[in-house]
Structures are given as C-alpha cells and as structure tokens.
C-alpha cells in the first residue's frame, strides 16, 4: 500500500486487539477524504482559494470543498465572527453529520485578535463551539492552512478528534455560553433536536 506511510505502519504494528485495528482502520479511512465547508467568516476566506486551487492544491491531501453542511466533515471558520454570523455558524455546525470537526484560522477566534475591542465580534470561539485545530496567523498562509489540515488528520488518526462528542456531552455549557451573547434570541431548538427531546424551547 503506497498510501500507508511509515508513521501509519508503525502505529499499526503497536495495535493489540482486533477491535483496535478496526478502529484504526475506520480512522484511517476517515482522514483520507475530508470534505470542507469553508465558511468564510472573516479575512481568512481570502487564503482559502489559493489553498484549494492549482498553486497549493489541497486535494492532494484529500481535502476538497463540500456543497452543503450536510455533506461536510470539517467546517473551516476563517477569522473573526460577528455575533450575527456566529448564530448562523452554530446552526450550520449543528446541521452537519457526525463525525464533524472544526478548524479555526487566524488570531481572532483565539482571543479577539485586532478586533478585541469591537462590540460586535466574539472573542473566544471555543466557548461556543468545540474547536479541533487552530492555526495562528493574520492571515495564515496557505502552507499554514495545509499544516492545519495535516494536524487535523493526525488527530483523527489518533482518534482524539472528538469535538462533536464534546459538544454533545457539554451541551449545557455551550448553550449557556451562547445564551450569554444571544440573550433571549437563541436559535430554534430544532437545530439540535437530539438535545431537546421535547421539541425544544429556550
């Protein structure tokens, strides 16, 4: 198998039980093809086209664009999120099928970035959504974005990319944080009906 590199082979040798091998194989297949929903929330959107087109060609890593959230594996949040956008992003994220991952690009999702004193952008993305991989930069170069995808693939292979489970387990925490900024204008309950079994109302 050409596609199995040295690191993969070494990992495979260490596995003991047959179930572990199955898990490993599932993760291996998952990481080979990552459909990306590039939600261009901010400036970072401008470095996505060079990443996915001819010059850097992210498709070499199995990364390509998805048409709708339902088909996407990873949502790329590229930069600051205005409050109005965050609402749409959360809804988009909740629509995605599991397994699902989040990549954040740039300074702004980490600690506000240069918009730290803006009244309309959120400062810490990981309070509202589980973020798997963060790439620093303003804006991250296409190389850095590719490294981000490689780090995500690594995380998937290790079986630690469990953002979606984290979101489901700690839904109270996330929803409370979201409520802090949205107030009584929360998202409708149907966007995460597995949580609101009664149809949902906040």
């Amino acid at each position: 198998m050409d596609n199995l590199n040295k690191k993969d082979k070494a990992q495979l040798k260490e596995l003991k039980s047959p179930m572990a091998v199955v898990d490993w194989a599932v993760n291996w297949f998952r990481k080979q093809s990552i459909f990306m929903l590039a939600y261009g929330t901010g400036c970072g959107a401008i470095e996505i086209p060079p990443t996915v087109t001819a010059r850097y060609d992210a498709e070499r890593f199995g990364v390509r664009g998805a048409a709708t959230p339902r088909q996407a594996d990873v949502i790329v949040l590229s930069g600051y999120l205005a409050v109005k956008t965050l609402k749409r992003v959360i809804r988009t994220y909740e629509q995605m099928q599991e397994p699902k991952y989040v990549i954040a690009l740039g300074s702004c999702p980490i600690n506000g970035g240069m918009y730290w004193d803006s009244y309309n952008t959120i400062k810490q993305l990981d309070r509202y959504l589980p973020v798997d991989v963060t790439v620093a930069g303003c804006m991250p170069r296409p190389e850095a974005v590719l490294e981000g995808f490689m780090a995500l693939k690594d995380k998937i292979q290790r079986g630690e990319a469990e953002g979606a489970r984290d979101y489901r387990d700690n839904i109270e925490k996330y929803k409370n944080n979201q409520k802090e900024i949205f107030g009584d204008k929360m998202l409708p309950g149907y966007t995460c009906d597995w949580y609101f079994s009664d149809g949902g109302s906040f």
Partner: peptide, 12 residues
Amino acid sequence: TVQFVKDHYKLR
C-alpha cells in the same frame, strides 16, 4: 466599547 466588551464577552 471596551466596557461593552468586558460586560458581554470574555477575553482569554
């Protein structure tokens, strides 16, 4: 705006 940010968002 700084006071508003302090009241509404959390800085890391």
